[in-house]
Simulated assay, not measured.
Amino acid sequence: MADELQARVSRVSVYPVEEYDAYVASHPLATPYHYSCWLKAVERAYRHTGWLVTVHRGSTLCGVLPLVEIKTPVGRSNLISLPFCDLAGVLADDCDVRHLLLAEAQSLADTNRAGGLEIRQGGAALEELDLKSVSGSPKVRMLSSLPGDANALFQSFKPKLRSQIRKAEKNGLTSEVRKDLDAVEQFYNVFAWNMRRLGSPVHSRAWFRELKQAYGDQMLVGLVFLDDQPVGAGILLMAGSKACIPWASTLEKYNRLAPNMLLYWALLSHVCERGCTSFDYGRSTLGEGTYRFKKQWGAKPYELVWSKWQVEERVESEPERSGHQSGVSRLRPIAEEIWRRLPLAVANWIGPKLRRYITL
């Protein structure tokens, strides 16, 4: 029949991505991560295979699910929607299409002998009443709405936040929002130093270069300078009226000058003037420092629902709402301390070789 649903699984490299991206652009729940740009960058930088699960009703595309297959040197592969970001997951016209997309994704995982399938979706807003009932330290997505111009946004901030932004400027810091590849390189120098300080393996330079090539002018770089030295930097992705900031870092020795305040203000004011109405500050642990930092800008917490299927058992794990960590390894603090002691050049060489398999 003409209106019968038909599912298809394709490599992203062979699917007509113009059709896919047009559907993503039309869907209200789409994020900048959903676009084929993210999948292309993953394939080019890390050589992981990108897949698209699609459903058509007749000739009309009515649902999509982007996936990346992560093959580790040991053990079985996993399919994730999507790695290296907070969420992507199913975009569908209705529940029937959604169920068919998930069924096809599980079939792909079975066919490819993957160990599991993980779908990362955004959830509902968490009100104050909800927050009081949440146990542990869950992860949440922080979102805010933006007004029609930067001046209105600035006036919406509390006096303390406005004074902190002015303080950064009075301390001699300046900011730029740029689109060029050299700005990506300057971002990376700040980002890599900060990741070593945090004891975490860093993404490769190639990853950010490929992101820039894929997203083009929809990827912005915010930079904060003291004289001519970058002391703060962030990456921002745009899609329609939505913007998100996946990575931001500052050099710790200059934090007393408040470079993070100027960095976020530079990016927020820029996208506000460009007509963005929604800003995604990314993932934070409920109640901790980054959560409080983002909340002061007007961001509110939303659920993160990460659902996992163990392919061998053919059962779905209970969705992990508002986060994904069941516990912190006892070895993690030791590993982080060792990493901090590595020379920066060594950390930047080893880090990407490990980071490509760390899907967070």
Rank of each mutant, 00 (worst) to 15 (best):
D227Q: 14
L251V: 10
R314M: 15
G323T: 07
W306Y: 06
D280T: 11
E337M: 03
N255G: 00
G351Q: 09
Q310V: 07
G282H: 08
A248F: 04
Y254C: 08
V221Q: 04
A299P: 03
G222W: 08
Y215P: 01
S322T: 06
P352W: 09
A233D: 08
A258C: 12
E337G: 00
C244N: 07
V231M: 05
W265K: 03
E288H: 13
L331V: 08
G240T: 01
E252T: 08
S329Y: 06
S322W: 04
A243C: 04
L236G: 00
R355I: 02
S317L: 14
V311E: 06
E336N: 03
W297L: 10
E318P: 00
G282N: 09
S307G: 06
G240P: 00
A345K: 10
L236N: 01
F279V: 12
I338Y: 04
D228T: 12
E312N: 15
R330Y: 09
M219K: 04
R274Y: 05
V315L: 14
L226E: 02
G232S: 13
V221H: 01
N260K: 01
S284E: 14
E320G: 07
A266Y: 01
G287Q: 13
R283H: 03
K242V: 14
A266R: 00
C276R: 09
F225E: 05
V231L: 04
S322N: 13
R256D: 11
S278Y: 11
A266S: 15
R283T: 12
H324Q: 14
L220A: 13
Y254N: 14
G275Y: 02
G287M: 13
H270Y: 15
L344Q: 05
Q296G: 05
C244I: 02
Q325S: 05
F279P: 02
P352G: 13
A347K: 01
Y264R: 15
A345M: 05
Y281E: 03
A347V: 07
L226I: 05
E316M: 09
D217T: 11
T250Y: 05
W309S: 09
V231H: 02
E303A: 15
G222V: 10
D228I: 04
L267N: 01
N348D: 15
Y302P: 01
P343G: 06
A345F: 07
P352V: 11
W297F: 13
K300L: 05
